[in-house]
Simulated assay, not measured.
Amino acid sequence: MAENEYRTATVGDRDVPYDPEQLRKIQEHPCYSETACHTFGRCHLPVAPHCNIQCNYCVRDFDCVNESRPGVTSKVLSPQETIELVRKVIQDYPYVKVIGIAGPGEPLANPETFETLRLVHEEFPHLIMCISTNGLLLPEKIDELQKYGVGNVTVTLNAVDPAVGEKIYSFVNYHGKHYTGREAAEILLKNQLEGIRMAVERKMFVKVNCVYIPGVNDDHIVDIAKKVGEMGAFSFNLILLIPQYKFAEVVPPTAAEKKAMQDRCAPYIKQMRHCARCRSDAIGKLGQDVQANVYSGCSRK
């Protein structure tokens, strides 16, 4: 490819060269571009019910049609059901350019995720493939993700110090063993950072989600942003805590506190400021979900 066919995208404080196909994965992805979110949409496929860690703020629910937050879906689909769904979505809503798997559990801990990626990528290779993960299995699954065309990876990273991480995670299940406390946090962090490194090395676009938890990681968030910015992550999405489970009594940050924290992180990495905290079955443009209409027209067992 001729040199003049490359353009650049700003990653942190650097202009990084990307070819046109890589740039498309920014320009048509509503989470990676502030302008794309008004024009393009995404379709989340809820095929991954199981999780391999327990975050102290996370409750995964099913059949909660009135809730809009991560970990919620009306139904878990089989890989075969997703093909019917994607066909209908791109026919009825051609502005949908992104197919994502974001739960309701941990996508990389569910074999259905990879079968879904295979089926969708084979039939719709032009669609942007996106994964959200806690990062525990990212290093060992990264090549399989690349094989199925996944070019956008979101990693939830709430600490870069295990002393902070052990306050956030109840346990980690890894390769058949159950870990708690500092050991669990150390294993998770090691794999998260290695997975981010490997994804960047493969020229995947990495977005880092970070849950803002007052009294737990609020003094640590700038350190997280600085670290992942140095590693070459594309953007940083600060998410306000939803008080539930073990953090049910924690008062969440205000919108003003969120903005102030984003401003502090901005010198180190591009900030995503338009997150809609999507459900695991979200379809449509951010803030304009249409999944109720879509599912009413699909055969569902």
Rank of each mutant, 00 (worst) to 15 (best):
L108M: 08
S170C: 10
P253Q: 01
F247N: 00
R42D: 09
K259E: 15
E3Y: 12
P243M: 03
A2P: 13
N152W: 07
E67W: 09
V172N: 01
H44I: 12
C278W: 06
Q262A: 08
I213Y: 06
K227Y: 03
D63L: 13
D218E: 11
K167M: 07
R69Q: 11
P17M: 06
K190P: 03
S78F: 07
T154V: 13
E34P: 08
G151A: 06
V164N: 05
G284T: 05
A260M: 02
E166P: 03
Y57T: 03
E34N: 11
L145W: 07
S296Q: 15
E106K: 04
L117W: 04
P17S: 06
C130Q: 02
G135S: 12
V290W: 07
E144V: 14
R300E: 14
E5D: 14
K141H: 08
G215P: 05
Q27D: 14
Y169Q: 03
G181Y: 00
M129Y: 05
S170R: 15
P46C: 13
H220K: 06
P162V: 10
F236Q: 04
D289N: 15
F236G: 01
K147A: 11
T10V: 15
D218R: 07
V228Y: 07
K246V: 08
I99K: 04
G195M: 05
R14G: 00
T133F: 13
V216F: 02
K301L: 08
D61H: 12
L117V: 11
P94D: 07
H274G: 03
E21G: 06
Y295I: 13
E106Q: 05
R24T: 14
A9G: 01
I187P: 04
E144Q: 15
V206N: 00
K75F: 14
A248L: 07
L23W: 02
H126T: 13
Y18K: 09
K167I: 04
S170F: 11
D143K: 14
L127H: 09
V200W: 10
A256I: 11
A248M: 10
H44W: 07
Y179T: 13
K75M: 15
K147R: 15
N4I: 09
C210G: 04
V208R: 00
C58Q: 04
C210H: 04
C275D: 10
N152K: 04
V96T: 05
